[in-house]
């Protein structure tokens, strides 16, 4: 089994487990909510059947993935078009020519984890630090550390994307954004 296949299998089984857990929870909970009432279906009726659909389809989905590959030869056209070319165009945009790597400086999986972690952190500090400071630091981290962008450009974009956007949204568009929960920062207008 190749690395890619192993990763795919782990992902598929993980997804299946997630779906199974959600649907079993919904199934049991919906019976508690009331499947049927005097005036017709209860609050649990619709979720119950949605969960049943998931469980039934999940079995089919896993079976399709785990069963041995069919020896049947795939048709090579769809709507009269060349299948391989089409599959390439619809599923692999990175096949494009003249494509240059972006300025990422960390390996892909780590990059993904760091991006997710940074989003978790920014949502944690959004209320105590306020939108402006939290977003300024977030943008600076993404631009400088993850993106390797120049110092001046990073500062300009981070300031515009935090302080500038705050003013635009709160003053012009009248959309509320969080100000700092910490008194000292609030005093500084953050």
């Amino acid at each position: 089994m190749t690395e890619v296949t192993r990763e795919q299998t782990v992902l598929r089984l993980g997804t299946a487990a997630l779906f199974a857990l959600v649907s079993i929870y919904v199934l049991t909970r919906s019976l508690g909510l009331g499947y049927w009432t005097d005036i017709g279906p209860g609050p649990g009726f619709f979720p119950f059947w949605s969960a049943v659909v998931i469980l039934v389809c999940l079995a089919g989905w896993l079976w399709n993935y785990l069963k041995p590959p069919s020896s049947e030869h795939d048709e090579d056209t769809i709507l009269g078009l060349d299948a391989d070319l089409l599959a390439e165009q619809t599923s692999d945009p990175s096949s494009a020519a003249d494509v240059a790597p972006s300025a990422g400086v960390v390996p892909q999986r780590w990059h993904l984890l760091v991006v997710v972690a940074s989003l978790v952190v920014v949502s944690l500090v959004l209320v105590p630090l306020g939108f402006q400071l939290a977003m300024f630091l977030f943008l600076l981290f993404h631009l400088r550390v993850l993106g390797g962008t120049g110092r001046v450009l990073s500062l300009l974009v981070a300031a515009g994307g935090s302080f500038g956007v705050f003013v635009l949204f709160t003053e012009v568009l009248r959309v509320g954004l969080p100000t700092a929960g910490i008194g000292l920062l609030r005093g500084l207008g953050l």
């Binding site: 300025a103 959004l126 977030f138 943008l139 993404h142 962008t149 956007v165 949204f169 954004l177």
Partner: peptide, 24 residues
């Protein structure tokens, strides 16, 4: 630069989600 675009998009994702009901 892609880093500029993606970081600004991330910012808008956070902002757009927060602004619906002013809730983290």
């Amino acid at each position: 630069p892609p880093a500029v675009l993606t970081s600004l998009i991330f910012m808008f994702l956070v902002l757009g989600s927060y602004a619906v009901r002013n809730s983290v």
